[in-house]
């Protein structure tokens, strides 16, 4: 996966920066938001709100660092969850799961991809969010630690345990 340079240069914002940035990171943000939100509509709202907030914090018109957007998604999701507790009926309607596929893939890969996706969905959230931010968000453990508000060593160990758990779950399904 190509990583788009989003910070560090002094160029002023131009339309292509944002188009490329959105094309490169939109899916990753939505993947993380889908794991944090209760339903697809909430996940999309999370992405939009987080992008706007992160851009406003950035303040110079350039695309914000992805870690900042992930961080805003998580904080917004926590607010959303608190609000969702007050609307139990809607929550129960969304509890049936998120039918949207998390990953794109070719037809040949579809079966294997579904296996991995199911395994990732079944992971405890503390492992799933670290794996998502590390593998598909392409954040460093330091950045993950900042996003999640945990020590970097904890982020690294959760990633290691999460991979082990994922491997175990996939073996159980295959065998």
């Amino acid at each position: 996966m190509d990583r788009v340079k989003s910070d560090g240069d002094n160029d002023t914002a131009n339309p292509m920066d944002w188009e490329e940035w959105l094309a490169a990171y939109g899916g990753r943000f939505l993947l993380f938001a889908r794991q944090q939100a209760r339903c697809e509509a909430d996940a999309r709202d999370l992405v939009q709100e987080a992008v706007v907030e992160a851009w406003q914090r950035q303040g110079d018109g350039r695309p914000p660092p992805p870690a900042l957007v992930f961080s805003r998604i998580r904080l917004r999701a926590m607010d959303q969850a608190r609000a969702a507790d007050r609307r139990a009926a809607r929550e129960s309607a969304a509890a049936g799961g998120n039918p949207e596929p998390w990953f794109d893939g070719s037809i040949e890969e579809r079966e294997r991809q579904q296996l991995i996706e199911d395994a990732v969905r079944g992971l405890p959230s503390i492992y799933r969010e670290v794996i998502t931010l590390k593998v598909w968000g392409e954040l460093t453990f330091e950045e993950i630690a900042t996003v999640l508000g945990i020590p970097a060593n904890t982020a690294a160990s959760r990633y290691r345990y999460g991979l082990a758990e994922l491997r175990k779950r996939m073996k159980e399904v295959v065998t």
């Binding site: 996966m1 939109g26 899916g27 990753r28 943000f29 939505l30 993947l31 999309r44 992405v47 949207e100 596929p101 998390w102 990953f103 794109d104 893939g105 991809q113 991995i116 996706e117 794996i131 593998v135 598909w136 991979l163 994922l166």
Partner: peptide
Amino acid sequence: EQELRRLRPAQP
């Protein structure tokens, strides 16, 4: 991990 990285998050 390599296999995970080959998966592309679904486009919005």
